[in-house]
Amino acid sequence: MPELETANTTTESAAKGRYFVRFTREQRYMHAVLFTTFLGLAATGLVMRFSESFWARKFAAGVGGFGAILFFHKLCAIVLTIAFLIHVKEVFQRGLFRREKGIFWGSTSMVANWKDVKDLFNHMRWFLGLGPKPQFERYAYWEKFDYWAVFWGMIIIGFSGYAMWFAPFFAHFLPGWALNAVLIIHSEEGLLAILFIFAIHFVNTHLRPDSFPMDMVIFTGGESEDEFKHKRPLEYQRMLSEGKAESRLGIAPPLWLLNFSKVVGSIAIFIGLTLLVLTLTAYFH
């Protein structure tokens, strides 16, 4: 990514102060693959789930009927599966072979801990004006929930999906009724994922007043010092006290990357909210 070459053109954002790296390029690419394939799976999956609705048939006719829908669904599924396997490989490589600290436990881990339970409780108290706002670490409890929801969803939806795709093969070691169950599981869990991402994740991460209209950090990788301090005070303090601020320093996101991210992010949010509305119309029809 030619960030260094173009860094000097972004005088405006650079003037605001220091930027720190939150996500590596690989993590941002992973998120891009995840949301692109997720949108593809959601769009094609919802059409199948609500195949009797007026928009499903129109959409299917527009893209070439069911055959095309299923083709794109499976294509996205394969890409997402590969991305998931790469991620799992990465986690184990970093945690087990490279012995990197903070992968499976500790303040930088994705694994939930007692602090997350307290944070959830105290955050709710803060919502109601009953206490101070909790101080968050690198990953807040709702971010860990998002992560594990996707992780659990990948396994559940992925397994049930492949069980339907290769039903005669899976029938060798699954009982007959399981072939009925996988559709229920796949469609309900898929629906949960879709509703959760488009109605909850979008707001929690992007649309809430602190980040409105979009939290660009997952696209640009860098976060301004102000925002970092405000959103994740504990991680910021820890970084300073451990003397790691210098090594975390990044460059201000170049303008082209900000604009590109805004366009991509807006399209993703627009598609997501459209699918959300269509789902709700079909569900409460």
Binding site: F127, L128, L192, V203, R208, P209
Partner: peptide, 20 residues
């Protein structure tokens, strides 16, 4: 599961947005 997760986070998110 679907109803539980969604209802909890809907309340959580709405309160959060208002408070923020």
């Amino acid at each position: 599961l679907l109803a539980g997760v969604l209802i909890f986070f809907m309340i959580h998110t709405i309160l959060w947005v208002i408070r923020s």
